[in-house]
Design a protein around this nucleic acid. Structure first.
Lengths: 337, 337
DNA sequence: GGCAATCATCGAACCGGTTCGATTTTCGAG
DNA sequence: CTCGAAAATCGAACCGGTTCGATGATTGCC
């Protein structure tokens, strides 16, 4: 069923059907009704490829996700789902492309084949080759996380630095003197993953400002690493009384290690950081933490991208989200002694 | 940059460029080289929409996922990522469409707008309206999970029934007499979600065959529900010594409840079921469980779908996976007394 | 050397929409 | 009743590829 067939049965030209459906030119009420009747009877949906070809846009957004090998975290997952829903709300579809590093076919196809009108790039690095490729093709894109020159590009990010600073001050206020940052994996930090890098910087700076003794460790994104990491901390720095973390995936392991060491939270040890609400509430006890507002970020990213697609020459816009820290039960005053 | 421009610069016709690139007709070596030189210099990627329009296929697969509101589980997430990678390996892209129930715009657009060559449908129900819609449009599709008439359609599934049976027999062999099934949410069961329904049936049947006393409870997909559910089990049926579960999301809660009740696994209580390897190994102690092989299912689903797209009239094929149960440390003999 | 078979290439039609300029119809004002 | 403007509709071009039939250039064979 195509527009020509509809036109024939309704006794009008193809262009009239097109105008009747799009409303871009007036069509008499009688004709519109006749066309609608035919469509209602036969069921017609314009061919998306033909429309894309004619209009020069696909009404499709690309979403570049980390490859399957990199285990996706819970937050990333809900981000993906939210992007799809936000796009759907604007009558757009989402094409997925797993891409880690430099080149890969999927990313190529999506970017250069005009399959999408714009791209959302997850998990970018401070110096990301994909950002450069996108820039050189002129395809509109929004990054999750920002790059070296923030003013020149479109992005949405969480203010990891600010949040970590507030976590540190919170612990300082509670009297803690020796604290540790449980970061994400060493590879991510080494490759210049923004949140990890900025968290480290803010952590060390703020700790110094508050006169605290600060350590930081990297930890792979899985529970087993969390156990090992925490045991290492206890062994190397037994005087540490509080931890700040941005590593959600390691949390179950940290929980187990705390338990194995017979440390009560928050009586013996305080724990806080940037953790999705869901996970923070599932912890025992519930964690004082800053939420990662994945849904909100997804909607913002889609909005920004559509805005950029509508006017590619517009001045880049961005959003730095600073969710508030929710006080729950995992932080408490250091026990004197 | 389009094919006409390439043709002009290479001094040949558009069709010659097309044949040179596709190899569907012989082109002289000299001409091929000239065309390749021009392309190398200017960079050309055929417009995907134009190609789709001309060829009548999009080289894109649709993946219908549960909506964001239904929190996606870890397995589902890795399934999505694996589908995208498997499709990419065959030079296909993946279009995401969140859809729960009956109608929704995204599903409509994807299905009726000829945006995709075929569809993979996750989380189907025994009687699923979307299956009927797809059937009536004639669009090739593969379901994850199977419907009432398994022979008539293409699907990939895990043999939940068989696995649960084996779990029950395993517990019976260990001497357990009173066991419980921790199912997924009551809503899912009520709506006819295949794995939940088949797990229940197999659980009750096998328990009866083994002469066990069997209970089954539904549990929402989150840790808090897991705690509540387990406490309820202890209160209502204190004689229960082992549980079988297919609810991965509730596991952290079950763990907490076991701990709170001061029950040692497997000394005081045995726990098994269908649980992704990753999660089973993260549990403390590691769970004796059947893996949900999401990656394998994804690759199979993509293979079947491409096969069906290539020959829509082919006899439906399907795959019922029965992963083996990995013995770990969470099941043990019932203590007599 | 002439004729057929083969190879390389071209031009045109087609996929199914959108859009622009032109044409026909309708209607009100003079 | 006529004329002109506005409203409704039409036809054709276009988006950028693929594909088919036709044409011209080579080559092999007798």
């Amino acid at each position: 069923m195509n527009i020509g067939e509809i036109a024939r049965r309704a006794g009008v030209s193809r262009s009239t059907v097109s105008y009747a459906l799009s409303g871009k030119r007036p069509v008499s009420a009688a004709t519109v009704r006749r066309i609608n009747d035919v469509i209602a009877e036969l069921g017609f949906r314009p061919n998306a490829s033909a429309r894309a070809l004619a209009e020069g846009r696909t009404r499709t957004l690309g979403l570049v996700i980390p490859p399957a090998s990199t285990r996706l975290t819970d937050v990333q997952l809900s981000f993906v789902a939210s992007v799809v829903e936000a796009a759907a709300a604007h009558d757009h579809d989402v094409l997925l492309s797993p891409s880690g590093g430099d080149h890969d076919r999927s990313f190529d196809r999506v970017v250069t084949g005009r399959r999408v009108d714009g791209v959302i790039l997850m998990e970018i690095l401070l110096h990301d080759p994909r950002v450069e490729r996108l820039t050189s093709t002129g395809l509109p894109f929004v990054t999750i996380g920002h790059v070296a020159d923030p003013a020149a590009s479109w992005w949405v990010d969480v203010d990891y630095g600010g949040l970590i600073s507030r976590c540190v001050r919170h612990l300082a206020d509670l009297g803690h003197r020796d604290i540790v940052l449980v970061n994400r994996s060493a590879e991510l930090v080494a490759s210049g993953y923004g949140p990890a890098v900025r968290a480290t910087a803010a952590f060390l700076r703020t700790a110094a400002e508050c006169g605290l003794i600060a350590h930081d460790v990297c930890c792979s994104d899985d529970p087993a690493a969390g156990v090992a990491c925490f045991e290492q901390i206890r062994a190397d720095w037994p005087e540490v009384t509080a931890a700040v973390t941005i590593n959600e995936a390691a949390l179950p392991g940290v929980q187990r290690a705390l338990h194995a060491a017979r440390l009560d939270v928050p009586r013996d040890f305080s724990l806080t950081g940037v953790i999705a609400d869901r996970l923070a509430e599932d912890f025992h006890p519930p964690l004082t933490a800053a939420d990662v507002p994945a849904g909100q970020m997804a909607r913002l990213a889609v909005d920004l991208l559509l805005e950029q697609i509508a006017d590619p020459a517009a001045t880049p816009r961005h959003a730095l989200l600073a969710p508030s820290i929710t006080l729950r039960s995992s932080t408490g005053a250091r026990r004197s002694g």
